[in-house]
Design a binder for these strands. Structure first.
Ligand SMILES: NC(=O)c1ccc[n+]([C@@H]2O[C@H](COP(=O)([O-])OP(=O)(O)OC[C@H]3O[C@@H](n4cnc5c(N)ncnc54)[C@H](O)[C@@H]3O)[C@@H](O)[C@H]2O)c1
Ligand SMILES: NC(=O)c1ccc[n+]([C@@H]2O[C@H](COP(=O)([O-])OP(=O)(O)OC[C@H]3O[C@@H](n4cnc5c(N)ncnc54)[C@H](O)[C@@H]3O)[C@@H](O)[C@H]2O)c1
Lengths: 270, 270
DNA sequence: TACCGCTTGTGAAGGCGTGCACAAAGTCGG
DNA sequence: CCGACTTTGTGCACGCCTTCACAAGCGGTA
């Protein structure tokens, strides 16, 4: 009796259990109840920036700043001030015209929208080079993402504490994840093992996955995956180097032409 | 005598050194040379996907696959097949209708576009938890991004080899980066030190930076920065959890209404 | 209270990216 | 050699995101 939900579509449930037809009436029909969705459709890009604003604002609180204008905050976050205000408008209207935003109020509202009022326990799978670094990192704990469980297939690691948490064997993943209410799974295993690990996390009820292994994971629709791929990041940087170099050499060639052949004018078109 | 270049604009240089007026003539004037820019404007999102395709294709080569259709490749990369074809069209027309793409040909052309034909030496700054993991990681070397230098401020680390490379003191950053032709700098220091380290990398001539510290770096226009912020990633996941929970509770309330009050129809609007 | 200056919040416009749908172009079997 | 079938490459329309520009709103001041 639970309606499927498409991106940004209305969620429509009928008493008959039949999925309702597209285009629900604007005016509620007889015997119809309309519940306005609280968490509105916020662009993903805006969500990512809100997290950045939140970090900057936390720094402001520490510095004793109580009020900040969109101009100041946008400069500190490295974005356009209009964009910042639009992003904040998704959160609500908590600014004071002529003055700016109360830092603490803004922090608490962004935290609410991002769902940071609840605790999100994290499990790290694959306690190798990267897994060790993640397990030892204090930055997660302090931001409301306590690392609650570690897993590895290596028997030698099982039971050894890393960053204060003993490593569990991967075979216990379901029991441990359920018991410790893990809501985010981090995959730091070799790529060959990543899909299998992902499947086990999903069967354990984990619906959010952060993947460091350079593979594309296949998951059900109700599971959210984000990937961190350092090689891809470097290749993007490489692309920009190449683009710049191309331009430079084109310009160089152009200048050579000018100087050598006495060309009057050089145009580089897209 | 080098013309400044705005995003996506034409680069126009005149023999007088004066910036040419907007709207260069379509038909070359007398004594004018037109150089078509090779690296066209490729959407950043497409560049990121091209890097993913490249990785998938490399796996295909290892498996002995010689030909692949857009449908197969898009499934393996987890994207829409039309999007894939459009992305590949930025690279050029290297497919065969009715057949697909020759894997090796595609690999070499994507590599060319991404600038992977040159070597890009990497320097890692901050050899702590994360820096160690990065220095020990073989995945960079194998993808054409050899780690050529490591830096830390900690005297105890100086000279100690990590992943086969001795750690240099941060004060030697300029000399070492120039000598080893470092083109990408990776910042893995605590956030407080990140901006200072960034400035030193920039003065050392490094134009590409990958930043792991949770701070917004200020850099000149000609320097490209990409950031990897795990806390932000987790907060985005958290947002989705919260959204789902909201929906679930709204639906729950809706169903309660249906069952308890005999409502006929419930609509949840955005 | 009335005015002034400052900053927010948002309507509207424009640009960019995505996805559809199909013509063009090639292969392969007969 | 031809026709059926397959798959590419892209024009186009749509929707999302960004950016501009300004009315609305608030605090301070006289
Ligand atoms: N180290 C880095 O800096 C870095 C950078 C970018 C990406 N990555 C990626 O992160 C992943 C981990 O890298 P790493 O350097 O830590 O590798 P690693 O080899 O040091 O560690 C991998 C760990 O995963 C464990 N493991 C293997 N199969 C497993 C399974 N089925 N279930 C549970 N655990 C399993 C291994 O026992 C090992 O402890 C790799 O996919 C790598 O490509 C690492
Ligand atoms: N460890 C992780 O898994 C993780 C995850 C996400 C983000 N980060 C971020 O990455 C950065 C590094 O994390 P870490 O856990 O490796 O920290 P760490 O404290 O273990 O290591 C930091 C290293 O940087 C060195 N350093 C300090 N100041 C320096 C300077 N001015 N120049 C050169 N080196 C300097 C220190 O000597 C130390 O070796 C931090 O900003 C952290 O927030 C780490």
């Amino acid at each position: 009796m639970v309606a499927q939900r498409g991106e940004g579509d209305e969620v429509v449930t009928t008493a008959t259990g039949m999925p309702a037809v597209q285009g629900a009436p604007i005016v509620p029909e007889q015997d119809e109840v309309v519940v306005r969705e609280r968490a509105r459709a916020i662009p993903e890009a805006a969500v990512a920036r809100l997290a950045v604003y939140l970090r900057v604002l936390s720094g402001m609180v520490d510095q004793g700043v109580t009020t900040i204008s969109s101009e100041e905050l946008s400069a500190a976050a490295g974005v356009n001030s209009a964009k910042l205000r639009k992003d904040l408008s998704y959160v609500g209207s908590y600014g004071t015209r002529g003055v700016g935003y109360d830092v603490e109020v803004l922090v608490s509202h962004i935290e609410r929208i991002l769902g940071l009022t609840r605790k999100h326990s994290v499990a790290v799978v694959g306690i190798g080079n990267l897994g060790h670094a993640l397990a030892n990192y204090g930055g997660f704990q302090s931001r409301g993402f306590p690392v609650a469980a570690l897993f590895d297939v290596d028997e030698d690691l099982t039971g050894v504490p890393v960053g204060g948490i003993p490593v569990n064997h991967i075979d216990d993943i379901t029991a441990v994840c359920v018991e410790r209410e893990v809501s985010i799974g981090v995959i730091a295993t070799p790529p060959q093992a990543a899909q299998a690990v992902c499947d086990r996390l999903v069967s354990a009820g984990v619906q959010c996955i952060l993947n460091f292994a350079p593979v594309v994971l296949q998951v059900p629709d109700d599971v959210e995956v984000r990937k961190v791929d350092l090689a891809v990041e470097m290749q993007i940087l490489s692309f920009h180097v190449a683009r710049r170099a191309d331009e430079a050499s084109a310009e160089q060639a152009a200048n050579d032409l000018i100087n050598g052949v006495g060309v009057d004018r050089v145009v580089i078109r897209p």
